[in-house]
């Protein structure tokens, strides 16, 4: 099995009100070095290898369902050979 780690984040051009609140809270705790906070989603997919290149399949899943590319960016990393 192959493990794929998908990160979905709001695009730069999109305001992230949750992130802003968390940043303000960190500042209130005296972590003034924090410049920005963006909140995203993390998904783990466990995929059975097939003839189809896994990058191609995951890209399609991201575009169709896992991310909404109007407001979100995605990136993923493929981890080889996970023992079951």
């Amino acid at each position: 099995m192959i493990k794929v780690k998908v990160h979905v984040t709001l695009r730069e051009s999109v305001l992230d009100p949750q992130g802003t609140v968390v940043k303000n809270s960190l500042h209130a705790m005296n972590y003034h070095e924090v410049q920005d906070v963006r909140i995203g989603k993390y998904l783990e997919l466990l995929i059975e290898p097939s003839d189809r290149p896994i990058e191609e399949a995951v890209k399609e899943m991201c575009e169709k369902l896992l991310a909404n590319t109007v407001i979100e960016n995605y990136e993923f990393e493929v981890e080889e050979a996970v023992t079951q």
Binding site: L15, P17, N68, V70
Partner: peptide
Amino acid sequence: LESGLLPGAMLRNQGL
């Protein structure tokens, strides 16, 4: 919006 019948997307309300 998600189906693409209308353009754009929804974000969380600004005031959360």
